[in-house]
């Protein structure tokens, strides 16, 4: 099938880098799936079906990775030999960690607020803005990409992980509020 050693950017024929035209990525994703998806091989032999299953699986994985800024950053770092999945890194930024604790506390208190939904909307917006700021930070850091930049970039990625998790938890609270209503 196609070359599994290709990196995800090459697979889509796009430049390796953090700045990425996501709309164009989606267009190419659909074009690629039109070629490799198992439904294109429903009437073919067993072997073509198997190959296409592997190909479509890889295209899906590549798309999910590149589409999301956090996963894209992690993937780019992994191409440079930095593993951000390992859970043994420490984040050396007391101010950021303090802010995280405050946000978590605010989230825990949302239910008791006079207007929980309004409170939550505010929190979600705040977290969303912080994520945007980290994305912008990543864009700058990947541009500079000196060796000493790598560890700073990895730190930003870690902050993104914190924020994304918090955002997901805030959404879960929102879901609970909606059910109760």
């Amino acid at each position: 099938m196609f070359d599994f050693s290709k990196n995800y950017f090459e697979l889509f024929g796009m430049p390796v880098g953090f700045l990425l035209d996501v709309a164009e990525l989606s267009v190419r994703y659909r074009e690629l799936q039109k070629v490799v998806h198992p439904d294109r091989y429903a009437a073919s032999g067993e072997q073509s079906r198997r190959l296409s299953l592997q190909g479509a699986t890889m295209v899906n994985e590549a798309y999910q990775t590149l589409k999301d800024p956090l996963k894209r950053a992690q993937y780019l770092l992994s191409l440079k030999g930095v593993d951000t999945d390992a859970g043994n890194r420490t984040l050396d930024d007391p101010a950021f960690l303090m802010q995280q604790m405050e946000l978590r506390e605010a989230l825990a208190n949302v239910r008791g607020a006079p207007d929980p939904q309004a409170e939550l909307d505010g929190l979600l917006r705040e977290i969303g803005d912080m994520i945007k700021a980290q994305v912008a930070q990543l864009a700058v850091q990947f541009e500079e990409s000196g060796p000493e930049q790598l560890s700073a970039t990895a730190q930003t990625v870690q902050k993104m992980q914190f924020l994304n998790k918090l955002h997901a938890e805030a959404e879960a609270v929102e879901a609970d509020l909606a059910e109760a209503y």
Binding site: F2, F12, G13, D21, E31, V35, V36, P69
Partner: peptide
């Protein structure tokens, strides 16, 4: 399959579009 992929990606040049991050945070 390779030929199909090449054809699907043909006509796209690596530097043809304005680069910008399209991520939206809701």
């Amino acid at each position: 399959m390779n030929s199909g992929i090449r054809k699907a990606m043909a006509g796209h040049r690596v530097d043809e579009f304005v680069q910008e991050d399209g991520r939206e945070v809701d």
